[in-house]
Design a protein around this nucleic acid. Structure first.
Length: 592
RNA sequence: GCCCCCAUAGUUCAAGGGAUAGAACAAGUGUUUCCUAAACACUAGAUCCAGGUUCGAGUCCUGGUGGGGGUACCA
């Protein structure tokens, strides 16, 4: 039983004995005492005055006295207004150190195989390379998976490749027309970049056609529909869905180029998947679902043959599910994908890491599946994260403001290299070590920068101001870790030391207090699907450690017991840093 | 038009309805004969506006202002 739970249950007991009032644990506002005040834990008693019929101060005093008797671990208490502050004996904090030392993975809950979560993230389109928005998605997805694993879930990471649709046909058509049979090898490009260029080219030529038609007197909306290129692309999609051989072959070839490119980016980023779904393999199931729903009368057909879902009962519009030409749309395939995933795993939760621009899409997806009688639709959860914004607004490929994932990682690497060389602490590193270090530091900086922000919130990225290496950053944390490793290398950590009766210094106690919170932190962060909470926790822990490091000598401490204690403390702090950073997908270096 | 989300120092981010709103960067100042100064210490600086609920509101409710997103036979 944790100390928090003990405090709560004894508070309940004290209140029952004092006021004959039965309350449950949720009604006990327990929190950590403010740093500048005396005490470790605080109970806010304002809410109790209605049955204590006494002033907040008196109420707090009475409860405090009762609990002091009930719990020997409480050293003393003090009351400020309605705040009852408890001071806990050092012995408790020393026992925490022992607990951390003994734990296999402190703060982690062992995995329950039956608590299955299928987590989709990344879900790229195969018509353009990955960019900053995907970076947030990928880092979040991977990290949330780690977080859920740490809290005992059996997580299956899945990717869904949007490998079919009109957008792919645009790239294909452009390549066919102007690609002159070249391949990524010919232009020495990554495959995803190569194909992406043709997507851009299509858009350019298409715009020219629209402009020309408008010039000839056509309305712009009409011109967008009538431009020969778009008609040709639509025909291509129909051919593809009809399984026409040549189109299919081109599609296979070009998609493979893209996959090869993506694999490189994923690998550099350090993300992976347990299973990859392809939209091309799920859209037919989606079509079947639409057919089923149409027969059940859940959907309706318009005169031109297109199929729709009427969502006016839910206060929404009508939603298209199948085009007039019979080809499927995004929603069609997502229905199929969800069904397939459920069939494959029957998970407790189907989690989607997708940007908040698709909130409406997921609302509709759930509603339609429920209309179809799929009760598991209730377990669909959309982890809706905010967009990454640039100083000039949204990223637009047309305006060349897209921050490419590969480019960004390369820039970070170069910055890490420059900074490290300037600091010059790299004696004895060989080229391989250095490359590894630059990767660790640059990715650490990038990942931390992205993940420290609450996923739900929109975030700002300014490419002009490069990501910092000082302050609340990945490298700051990595540095502290490396410094501890340096100490541990020089120190001889003796086993079998007992620290019973050791008087803790304020900074040492601060550290142990924070360390004691790690298990709860993991639990809460996992519930909120928020790696940012882990990031902020680790940052605070590291700041506290640095203060301790500054104030107290470790290796030069003459008292042997104190010295061993501080070495042990440092060791466990570094373990938590490593563990927390691991959840964020960030490695920690032995030296930097 | 209708629907959803957001608004905190100059900037980027924190703050489970609780005490004096925390950090970091940028600005200014200090600390290395001492375990890695990618560090530490100090100074200055903020809850968009108007109401309401509450013992207590950055947090909840209403209205306003400002930003973002959605509402496509795009994904």
């Amino acid at each position: 039983m944790t100390l928090e739970n003990q405090l709560i249950s004894n508070a309940i007991k004290a209140i029952d004995e004092l006021y004959s009032q039965q309350i449950d644990s949720k009604q006990i506002p327990l929190q950590q005492t403010r740093k500048d005040l005396e005490g470790d834990y605080t109970i806010v008693v304002f809410g109790f005055v209605r049955f204590s019929k006494k002033s907040p101060e008196e109420t707090a005093k009475e409860i405090g006295e009762k609990m002091l008797l009930l719990m020997p671990i409480i050293k003393s208490f003090n009351v400020i207004k309605g705040f009852l502050n408890f001071v806990i004996h050092d012995a408790y904090y020393l026992s925490i150190l022992q607990e951390i030392k003994d734990a296999e993975q402190y703060g982690f809950v062992s995995v329950n195989e039956k608590d299955k979560v299928v987590l989709e993230y990344s879900a790229p389109n195969t018509n353009k390379p990955l960019h900053l928005g995907h970076i947030r998605n990928n880092l979040l997805g991977w990290s949330v998976a780690e977080l859920l694993k740490a809290s005992g879930r059996n997580v299956i990471k899945v990717n869904l490749i949007n490998d079919r649709g009109i957008h792919i046909c645009k790239s294909m058509l452009a390549w066919k027309k102007w690609g002159e049979n070249t391949t990524p090898l010919d232009t020495a490009q990554k495959g995803d970049k190569f194909v992406g260029d043709y997507y851009v080219l299509f858009d350019k030529k298409y715009k020219e056609e629209i402009k020309q038609l408008v010039h000839q007197g056509m309305e712009e909306d009409e011109a967008k529909k009538q431009a020969p290129l778009i008609i040709e692309a639509q025909e291509m999609l129909q051919k593809w869905e009809a399984g026409e051989k040549e189109t299919f072959k081109l599609w296979t070839t070009m998609n493979q180029w893209v996959y090869d490119g993506f694999d490189v980016t994923y690998s550099n980023m350090g993300v992976d998947f347990d299973k990859v779904y392809y939209e091309s393999q799920t859209y037919l199931l989606g079509k079947e679902l639409v057919e089923e729903a149409l027969n059940k009368g859940i959907l309706f057909k318009k005169e031109n043959g297109s199929i729709w879902c009427d969502l006016s009962d839910e206060g929404m519009d009508e939603k298209l599910l199948l085009r007039a030409d019979g080809t499927s749309v995004y929603m069609t395939q997502d229905l199929g994908t969800a069904q397939l995933r459920y069939n494959d795993y029957e998970p407790n939760r189907l989690l989607y890491v997708v940007g908040n621009e698709q909130n409406y899409h997921f609302d509709v997806l759930k509603i339609i599946l429920k209309k179809l009688g799929r009760e598991w639709a209730e377990n669909i959860f959309h982890l809706s994260y905010g967009m990454v914004e640039l100083p000039e607004g949204k990223m637009k490929s047309r305006e060349g403001t897209v921050v490419d994932a590969d480019d960004l990682m390369k820039e970070m690497y170069d910055t890490a290299k420059t900074t490290t060389e300037e600091l010059g602490k790299i004696d004895g590193f060989n080229d391989e070590d250095l490359d590894q270090l630059y990767k660790t530091v640059s990715l650490g900086a990038l990942k931390y920068f992205i993940l420290k922000v609450d996923p739900k919130k929109q975030m700002m990225f300014n490419p002009q101001e490069s990501i910092d290496f000082n302050g609340n950053t990945g490298p700051f944390i990595q540095y502290t870790y490396a410094r501890i490793q340096s100490i541990l290398k020089k120190a001889d950590l003796k086993t079998g030391f007992s620290f019973d009766g050791l008087i803790l210094q304020a900074k040492e106690k601060d550290l142990l207090k924070q360390m004691a919170n790690y298990p709860m932190l993991i639990k809460n962060a996992a519930e909120n699907l928020s790696p940012s909470q882990v990031a902020n926790y680790i940052f605070d822990l590291v700041k506290t450690y640095n203060k301790f490091y500054q104030e107290h000598s470790i290796l030069k401490e003459t008292d042997k017991e104190k010295k061993q204690f501080r070495i042990q403390l440092s060791q466990e702090v570094s373990q938590i840093i490593k563990s927390g950073m691991g959840i964020l997908g960030i490695n920690v270096p032995q030296r930097m």
